[in-house]
Amino acid sequence: MPLAPARPQTFWSRHKRSLTPWLFLAPGLVMFLLYVLIPIVQSVWISFHDWDGLGEKVWIGIENYVELLDDDTFYVSLKNNVLWLLLYLLAIPGGLAVALFLNQTVFGIRLYKSLFFFPFVISQVVVGLMFTWFYAPDFGLFSALIEWLTGEQVAILADERFVTYGIIVAGLWPQTAYCMILYLTGLNNINPEQVEAARMDGAKGLKLLWHVILPQLAPASFIALVVTVIGSLRSFDLVSIMTAGGPYGSSQVLSYFMYEQALSEYGFRMGYGAAIAVVLFLIMMVFITVFIVRMLSQERNG
């Protein structure tokens, strides 16, 4: 058997197999580095400075963080973020309920589905404006209703007791629609044989839902949880449109507080804003880590 002539081994031909995946990954990695990782490092770096965005950066160490711990607005925002996080989760059972309700075949069901999905399609800004009018004292539908019921006017968005709840309700509307769509797709993949078998065994109603349907919806529930938690921490647009953090800062959340300090008309404290961003990032990191760990362990088991 004649030996094949030994071809000169180039670097490329020797490492083809190991390099190719990286080459395919490269565009994505560059983007990720440029637009995600480097800005994160920059934010952390800026958070140790006093900087107005124009002049020289002055290194002040952890002073921004010290000030943050002494800032009432920070605690108000933190408290509101927790409220958002907890109440926003209502979107998941809400979305499930709507999805179960819509998961039937009657005439025009597609139209109903799209109507329920509608709030997720329109911009958050529009949602915010609609709810602002809805709550508006004197001419809003909601305040008219409250006045009719109790004889007293309540300006939801001007009352520090109700303002955050008012905004969360506005946020729940599109978020419920989002969860609904996730569950509707999940319901399409339900194994009909299992449901049939369960019915034969006499399971129905809530029992059927809890023991047969929900376990099969677990992937949808997981995604719904992830997007809802992250969505609640990013709650910026509605706060900005509906109250701008007011009245007197009582509806602040971390993301809006950061924007206000760093970028708004009365702000331009880049260092302080960056410090808030870092704190928000750390809080998000906790959740993201939990999610990723769970996802990885599932992949390994699956």
């Binding site: 001007a158 007011g246 009245p247 007197y248 800062g249 206000e260 008309e265 009365y266 702000g267 331009f268 404290r269």
Partner: peptide, 22 residues
């Protein structure tokens, strides 16, 4: 007020005025 006082002060100040009026 928001032109005579620097931006950070003006923002906090007017927020305080609003709170006072409530």
């Amino acid at each position: 007020y928001d032109r005579d006082a620097p931006a950070a002060m003006a923002k906090a100040g007017m927020e305080g005025f609003q709170e006072f009026m409530v």
